[in-house]
Amino acid sequence: MWGTGFFKGLGFTLKMLTEKKVTHKYPDEPYIMPDRFRGIQHFEPDKCIVCNQCVRVCPTGCINLVGKANPDPEKKGKVIDTYDINFEICILCDLCTEVCPTEAIVMTNNFELATYSRDYLMKDLKWLSENNKNVREENH
């Protein structure tokens, strides 16, 4: 009958009045992400073998790294000197961490990137290696 829809709708919303609320108290209570969540990367300089694979796979080209000769003359190969990720353009696609053979670059579950200036979005080696909380366990 014409008109019943109104009352059904009103009844429904009235019922919802006492229903459990689903709002998440986000800044007060942290939002826990599942382990696989792709947050901001963590970088461990010691593990890096400067193979450049991450740079090559990155679809947005936001990784910049420079290697240098190993200070220990006994050993061959290079060690990492600088490692920057530009978070203005990083799309957190997970490809760099997927490709890294030594898990030098891994994802964390941290996702809070907001800052007051773009300049802070240029994260360097130091920042990335200090970003060592909530590191993802499973990376491949």
């Binding site: 009045l17 229903e19 689903v22 709002t23």
Partner: peptide, 10 residues
């Protein structure tokens, strides 16, 4: 408040 509650918000 009322509308919030009806929409499962606080």
């Amino acid at each position: 408040k009322v509308i919030g509650w009806m929409q499962l918000r606080k």
